[in-house]
Each structure stands twice: as structure tokens, then as C-alpha cells.
Computed example of a mutant assay.
Amino acid sequence: MSAKRLHLITTAFELFYQKGVHAVGINEILSESGVAKKTLYHHFAGKDELVLAVLEYRDQRFCHWLQGSLDAATSVTDKIDALFDALDDWFNDRVDALRPFHGCFFINVSGEYSAPDHPIHLQCTRHKINVAMLLREQFEALGMASSLGSRLTDDLCLLKEGAITLAYVQGDCNAALKAKDTATRLVAAVL
């Protein structure tokens, strides 16, 4: 990826994450990035294509961060602790790679592009699927049966999404720790 393209993506991400996609125009992105309009349109056919590239960028960064947070854990309970401890760090702005917490970028953007068949909405859905697959693979790597790993992943994703929403909408910086407590009780009943 060229440096200019990456600069446009990261600048657009910062603006979109802080203000929302529809609130940010191309001219603001150009002004903030210092890139010429011709250069932007050399890399992206339009704003929707830029948004898709930003979503892909954020998906890669988020999944890389989450994978790194989970990899060192060597048991199911350790993985669950690692998941919610990582979320707690994110909610409390202790993860430089994810920027200050403004909720889930994918939830926020999918709300702006609510038609389920819109390419931007579909890209947001793919991110949620990617995160679930990452979790499921972590459990299966520990030898957990696929059906149990899938069920646990579904339960944890519900808790994760609820914690993200609680942290962002209600400003509850302890939401991840509350979800971790719930997950711990859930796993104790299942395993």
C-alpha cells in the first residue's frame, strides 16, 4: 500500500471515528490530510470506496490487537480473562493502537449505513464474523469441541457487544469487567 493511500485511510479513520462518516466530507479529509483531491480520487473512486478501505484497515488493526491479547492465554478461562481485560484496556484508553475509545467503529458505521445489503454494512458484518472466528479458533486450538467452542463464542460475543455498548452509550468504563464476571460464571456452569 502506498504511503499516500495509507495516510488518507488513517486520516479518514480518525475523523470518521470521532465524528461519524456522514458528518465528515471529502474536503475535511483533504484539509486534514494535506492531500490533493486528485490524489484522493487516484486512490478511491469516491467516499464509499474510502469508507470500505477504512473499515478494512480498522478490521485488520483490531483483529491483530485482539489476537495478540489472546495468544498468550493457555486455558479457556485465561482466554476469557484476556478477552475482557483487553476490552477493559480499550474502554479505558490504554490501547494506543486503537485510539481513544469512541465505541465500536463497526457498530457506529453500520448504524449510518443501515440497509443490510449495502456494501459498507456488509463490511461491518464481516468484521463481527472475523472477531467471532478468531475467538472460536482460539478455543478450538485448546482442544475444545467445535460445537462447544461455537456456543461459547456466541455467548462471549453477546457479552462483548453488550459491554461495548454499555461502555460507549452509558460511559460505564467497568463494563468489560462486569461482562468478564458474567462470562466467568457462565463458563463455570458449562465446563
Rank of each mutant, 00 (worst) to 15 (best):
A175H: 00
N27M: 10
L186H: 15
H42T: 11
M133W: 13
C157P: 01
F84G: 01
A141V: 06
V187A: 13
L152H: 03
H7T: 04
D154E: 13
Y17G: 01
N174M: 07
Q123K: 15
R136N: 10
N108G: 10
G34L: 09
S147R: 08
F13M: 06
L87Q: 05
L142I: 10
I164P: 00
E14V: 04
N108S: 14
N130V: 11
D89I: 06
A45N: 10
Y168A: 07
L40P: 00
D59Q: 14
T182H: 10
Y41M: 09
K180N: 07
G20R: 01
H22R: 10
H118T: 09
I129C: 10
D81F: 07
E137W: 11
D181K: 15
D81N: 13
S2Y: 08
D71I: 08
G25A: 02
Y113H: 09
G46A: 12
N92E: 06
I120W: 03
P116F: 10
T74R: 15
D181P: 04
I120Y: 04
A141Y: 08
H64V: 12
A115Y: 14
A73N: 11
T74E: 15
V54I: 14
K38G: 15
G162T: 00
E112H: 13
A115G: 13
C157D: 08
R126W: 11
P119G: 12
S110W: 04
I129D: 11
L40M: 11
D155R: 06
L87I: 04
S150T: 06
S31G: 15
E112P: 12
L40D: 00
G34M: 10
A163F: 00
H127W: 07
G25C: 04
A86S: 11
E137V: 13
V76K: 05
F13Q: 02
A3F: 11
L30T: 03
D81K: 08
S75N: 09
A53Y: 03
A82C: 09
T77R: 13
D88G: 04
D172C: 02
L134P: 00
V21T: 03
F13N: 03
A115C: 14
H127E: 07
R151W: 08
I129H: 13
S147I: 05
K178I: 12
F106C: 04
F91A: 02
D78V: 05
S147Y: 05
I120M: 08
R5T: 09
K38D: 14
